[in-house]
């Protein structure tokens, strides 16, 4: 880590202006991933713009019933927030399944979305990685990749996105709110992260200098039954081998609202659009769930050593779907 400049703007506009003055600067919030990567030499910004104290640390209910979460709300506070726990339990559960109490106290909503892959080749400057150093190759493809992607990977990159929170947000149809030199915009969380393709160095659709200001949880998903489940090597404090976030409402035995997203399977939280389409309007039966999930996971292209992720993801999804679906009414 080389020496770097440090700026602490007091507002969003000022932060964005600071970036304009120092192109290539990094925004810093909780630092739980960025400082880690700077120590490894993976990131080496010349200037850090500290946005951790921007007045974005609130959760507010909007008139239409949606919930806006500020970008600097800490993961632990978001998980504990009564409105989140009561209306969006999948989000609270996903946050609590990630990292440790200490890390959740520091990590922010915006930073969590922007955390980078935990691929060991990405973290090791002595090994090739197209994400870290475009054109250097992918060490994982022929190397050790038990933890890597089975969906949406490319010859250039097989990394996964490590976030639990983002998986829940994808299933919730949440939107990321951004602010940059060209003003504000928002995009669905499910479209925020990219697939690697030929440009694995780009994790997301965020533009240079853009700042995440918040996340919008839609009113339509409020109070809908939802849950998160994660499989991991140890019982706590480990990244997902696979995980699933499910939002499911059944009326008269028919699925009338569904959000399904997988974690640990791809370069981004994997919104299961094919499965959702199949389920919407279908009878909420185990067989229907099984068929829909298969429709999604049949697209998987496992690598030499990670085929287990496909049945693991299937089992997780079916377990949560069946748990959330009300027991069929007895005649």
């Amino acid at each position: 880590m080389k020496g770097f400049g440090y700026l602490r703007p007091t507002g969003v506009e000022e932060a964005v202006e600071a970036y304009a003055a120092h192109p290539g600067a990094h925004y810093l919030a909780g630092g739980t991933n960025l400082v880690d990567l700077m120590k490894l030499g993976v990131e080496s910004p010349g200037v850090l713009i500290d946005v951790g104290r921007l007045p974005l640390d609130w959760v507010e209910e909007l008139p239409d019933g949606a919930l806006r979460v500020g970008a600097t709300v800490r993961n632990s506070d978001l998980a504990a927030h009564p409105l989140v726990r009561d209306r969006y339990p999948v989000l609270s559960q996903a946050l609590l399944a990630g990292a440790s109490g200490q890390l959740r106290n520091a990590a922010t909503t915006g930073g969590n979305l922007l955390q980078r892959t935990r691929c060991p080749y990405f973290q090791d400057l002595g090994k090739p990685c197209n994400k870290r150093q475009p054109g250097s190759g992918c060490g994982a493809r022929d190397g050790v990749h038990r933890d890597h992607a089975v969906l949406g990977h490319s010859p250039h990159c097989i990394a996964t996105h490590p976030s639990d929170m983002a998986v829940a947000l994808a299933a919730l149809d949440a939107r990321v709110e951004l602010y940059g030199a060209e003003g504000g915009r928002s995009i669905p969380v499910a479209d925020f992260h990219r697939l690697p393709g030929v440009r694995p160095e780009r994790d997301s659709e965020i533009r240079p200098g853009e700042l995440i200001t918040g996340v919008l949880l839609p009113a339509a998903r409020a109070g809908v039954p939802s849950a998160y489940r994660k499989a991991r090597d140890r019982a706590s404090y480990a990244f997902a081998l696979a995980s699933v976030a499910v939002v499911l409402r059944v009326a008269d035995g028919v699925v009338d609202q569904v959000g399904l997203a997988f974690g640990g399977l791809a370069h981004r939280p994997w919104r299961a659009h094919h499965a959702e389409t199949a389920l919407l309007g279908a009878a909420a039966t185990p067989a229907a769930f099984e068929g829909a999930v298969a429709l999604e996971l049949d697209r998987a292209e496992p690598l030499r050593d990670n085929a287990y992720k496909v049945p693991l993801a299937r089992n997780l999804a079916l377990d949560v779907l069946n748990r959330l679906a009300p027991a069929p009414a007895t005649a």
Binding site: L28, G31, Q102
Partner: peptide, 19 residues
């Protein structure tokens, strides 16, 4: 490295002092 910053437990190894 766990310490309390403003009463909350955090990993001291990942917090830049300047912040």
């Amino acid at each position: 490295c766990t310490v309390l910053v403003d009463g909350r437990r955090v990993n001291g190894c990942l917090l830049l002092a300047v912040t």
